[in-house]
Design a protein around this nucleic acid. Structure first.
Lengths: 198, 198, 198, 198
DNA sequence: GATGAATGAGTCTTCATTCAT
DNA sequence: AATGAATGAAGACTCATTCAT
């Protein structure tokens, strides 16, 4: 076969990555065998290995791809300059939407990725970087909130960003493990905590 | 040979469980081999298998034990009837304290457990139950806050509980993956979000 | 099973090593699969791997063992203080005797080992050391020959040793590849070369 | 497409063979992959396979080619009608010269070929034939030495040939594995063995 | 009760070879 | 003729679990 076009190469990569995710979500990162992925991708072992040179490589690529998709989902939301509870509502709703698809649940992916990051230096660095950037973006929003008078002038934009990020990450866990949480719950809960007199 | 005393049996179980956790934290649940645990426990393969009849059993026992320890840590805090930001501060600080020990980091354990719960029905049920109970306890606190006028009368205690639980779970993730968050940050952030005018 | 005795352990090792040699001689070092060896040894994969932690380890052990056996064969010969052509005759005859056994042909083993030594640093060092020691021993014999007047006083014991070692190593090759050479041929040839007038 | 000229075909064959040798010497016959050779040759997989229909074919062709080159090197030496020690000196020096080139070391090639010949019938036959012819040529020289009075009249030309061939083959081994041998050493050693009184 | 050697199914990965384009 | 992507059988090695002693 003659040289394959870049387009086709990328399509094949995506095809393998998708097959990998289907398996990873069903079985977890380690319990998924390369044979599972190979079968799910419809290709041969050799073909899969010509695109990803090891299972580890495939895991990293899969997680990284998810992170990239997640970024594409979140950035437009932040750009709309929402209020804190609106931000939570929109982000959580967006993640939940992704979760609804049966083949691609961002929450499960996140949980697997976090676990793997503990023993995979490279993966940990990639994830850390991603969340750090996201936190910075929330911090920028918090600074705007201060200017707009939504937050007090003396508030720490950094602490607010850490708090909101925790809320979002915690939603992922709570929704995957406990269930029965949605965007309205968290946005509402946050609003009520804020509305209380202190 | 004479039967071993119950006391001794429990001590052995604890010894194995501790060895398992040391390994699990270092290598992850799946990358840890039974031999790793056997060596770390100082016992023989047969001995370990006489206490836990499979690796899966051991994983479940290990996670359950952690959860029990965590409960012992959290319940006294709730009993003190703290305000929302105090609750967050105390819980997060408690988890962080546990994290400081090099052999036993609750955060890492949690991350591994959540990941495993995806494919392990039994583990998921155990964890779900635990978090559900904890959420109920927070909800009870929220109801008290309403009575005390800390929250508005119409506030949903359930939503507030979900929100605070998210905050706590999210701390675990953020602190394990991104780092650079502590109890003061989150308690402060929450206070500032609450203090803003709306 | 309780701890195995050292004696038994060594017997098992020898059993595996022997199985390995039978396969290596039939198929060559690389074409022999671990499964071949495992089947030939009558043990399980795990058992074989508990004695030798990789195929490479097994190859090195096998070659080293052969070298040790060879040493046991050659040293007594040198101790008898033979004349040059007697030395050649005895060494070559000894190697040939070993070659006659169907399961263990030192010549084939040597050829495989030399080939492997090209790309295996550790093996090369082991072999080099062995042949170097043997050459030194021949050199010592040559020095005795000078004292006894068999060689001229000005002769280089070192060069004589190199020459005789070449003769022996070359016999191994010639006999394995071309065939039709034996101890009498070489001892005779050497005598005739020496007997010619110059 | 137009047929390729014979000249070009032969050049291509030579190009592939040379690439193969470079790889074989670096990695050994079995550890070298077809991809290694394909890459080193600068051609495509299909192209290489159109010249040699299997790896085995390539191995045989490579060894045979080396043998042919070796013959071209040795025949002129024998034609000069040297004395025994001169013959050894010249042959060994010639092989050593070839060995000095970094891409083409006849000694390493020989060692690999001998090893492979053990399990490759066809290769063994080719090599056997080659060495047999060479031995015959030495035998012819020995017959001339008898006529010239260099050897005694009753000497066995056959045994002398076997002895000298062993010396040469042994040089190859000794120089590849132990090192520190050259033409002068062996020619000198042989002369000293001959000069001793018996 | 305890031991740890042994098992063997299952994993990841490679690589000689083919054949659609 | 030439290309190089794809194939898939086979190889080295691991590891949860058992059971003879």
């Amino acid at each position: 076969m003659p040289k394959i076009s870049d387009e086709k190469r990328n399509a094949r990569r995506a095809q393998i990555l998708e097959a990998a995710w289907v398996c990873f979500q069903k079985e977890g990162l380690h319990a998924t065998t390369m044979e599972d992925i190979i079968r799910a991708s419809g290709l041969s072992a050799g073909a899969v290995y010509s695109y990803f040179k090891s299972k580890d490589e495939l895991i990293i690529a899969a997680v990284t791809t998810s992170l990239t998709q997640l970024r594409g989902l979140l950035e437009p939301l932040l750009a709309r300059d929402p209020l804190p509870d609106q931000l939570i509502h929109q982000v959580v709703a967006a993640v939940g939407t992704f979760a609804a698809r049966d083949k691609y649940d961002l929450r499960r992916i996140a949980l697997l990725g976090w676990s793997e990051a503990q023993r995979n230096e490279r993966l940990r660095a990639t994830m850390r970087e991603f969340y750090l950037v996201f936190r910075k973006q929330i911090e920028a929003a918090a600074t705007r909130w201060k200017k707009a008078g939504v937050l007090k002038a003396g508030a720490s934009a950094d602490d607010v960003a850490k708090t909101l990020l925790s809320l979002i990450l915690g939603f992922v866990v709570q929704s995957a493990i406990v269930g029965d949480v949605d965007a309205d719950d968290l946005a509402g809960g946050l609003r009520q905590l804020a509305a209380g007199r202190r």
